[in-house]
């Protein structure tokens, strides 16, 4: 029981982190139709910028400054790169972000080297806030939860209560109509792209100390973010939240429980082969849940797309 509680907390941390990435991506995608492959690269940039700032000014200025810099960089890339490509269609846009992801990874390696950098949580948060059984919960984790929830509430407020939010929501569903109503859609695009990448940058700032700051961090998280928004339904903020938490808890639970395939197969009525060493299905028999935990979201995505192409909360196909 204790372990379940701990897993719920750990899963929440990971899920909310995913949400910060996927909320920006889903906004960008549903509005501009761009599958932004470089989204996780902005997450990486956030972590590296914050690391650089933290070396001179400490952690807290980095928490504010790094996402802003990332957001500005994102807006600039939209303005001078993506907008140019936009006229050619969606596939070139995708290739552009693909190339951008490669480029950002190389640039990061060029300036910060290829090794993991020592980007750490601030000293004030480096203690165990409480323990459940033998498991300590670090204060920094609670801080991560707090920041993510705060961001979610802000987003929700902006999108539902402000005029800008209304326009964005309208543009999510009917981009053409919004343009026809005289709104400067390219400017909104740039703004949304900037805010989306800033969110990714913020996720990087707070995740860097926890999950490590190294050049491969973008690739590691890259495709799972797509999986999240597709499961949640493109363009749905609530969908992104639900899918993020679902994936967070699913992978955490899968990693925590050693459910073995052999037990399941035997329970179903198969007989365990005596000599396993040369059996053709030996790998299936020895399979355990933690081995496949990180690929479960992909399985879930394929199943959902086959039966419900719009995702859990989506209303329209892209």
């Amino acid at each position: 029981m204790e372990l379940v509680l701990v897993i719920l907390i750990d899963g929440l941390v990971y899920g909310l982190l995913l949400f910060m990435l996927s909320s920006g991506l889903t906004l960008i995608f549903s509005m501009m139709g761009v599958l932004n492959f470089a989204h996780a690269s902005f997450y990486m940039l956030g972590a590296y910028f914050a690391y650089q700032i933290s070396r001179y000014m400490g952690f807290w200025p980095g928490l504010i400054l790094a996402p802003i810099i990332v957001g500005l960089a994102g807006a600039a890339i939209e303005r001078f790169g993506l907008r140019k490509v936009h006229q050619y269609g969606h596939v070139p846009e995708l290739i552009f972000t693909f190339g951008l992801a490669l480029l950002i990874e190389e640039i990061v390696q060029f300036f910060w080297g290829k090794n993991q950098v020592p980007y750490d949580a601030p000293e004030v948060l480096q203690f165990a806030l409480f323990s459940i059984g033998t498991n300590e919960i670090q204060a920094y984790k609670v801080f991560m939860i707090a920041i993510s929830v705060l961001i979610f509430l802000c987003l929700l407020y902006v999108l539902t209560k402000t005029r800008v939010g209304m326009i964005i929501q309208a543009a999510l569903s009917y981009p053409r109509t919004v343009e026809a109503l005289g709104h400067n859609v390219p400017f909104i695009f740039m703004g949304v792209f900037g805010v989306g990448t800033a969110l990714a940058g913020l996720a990087g700032v707070i995740a860097g100390p926890q999950l490590g700051t190294f050049p491969g961090m973008a690739f590691l998280l890259g495709s799972i973010v797509f999986v999240t928004i597709v499961i949640g339904g493109l363009g749905s903020l609530w969908g992104a939240l639900v899918a993020s938490l679902l994936i967070g808890w699913m992978t955490t639970f899968a990693a925590s429980y050693n459910i073995a395939m052999a037990d399941i197969l035997m329970a179903v009525g198969f007989e365990m082969p005596e000599d396993m060493s040369e059996h053709a299905l030996r790998d299936i028999w020895s399979l355990t849940l933690p081995q496949i935990g990180p690929i479960l979201p992909y399985l879930l995505m394929v199943v959902i797309l086959v039966f419900r192409p719009y995702g859990l909360f989506g209303k329209r196909d892209a």
Partner: peptide, 28 residues
């Protein structure tokens, strides 16, 4: 192939990842 566009792309991504991951698991 029931639909083109994003759904096809994402299914292909999912299948690709699943098979690549199982290639390390299914040693036989």
């Amino acid at each position: 192939t029931r639909t083109a566009g994003t759904v096809f792309a994402m299914i292909s991504l999912g299948i690709g990842e699943l098979i690549a991951a199982s290639s390390v698991i299914v040693v036989a």
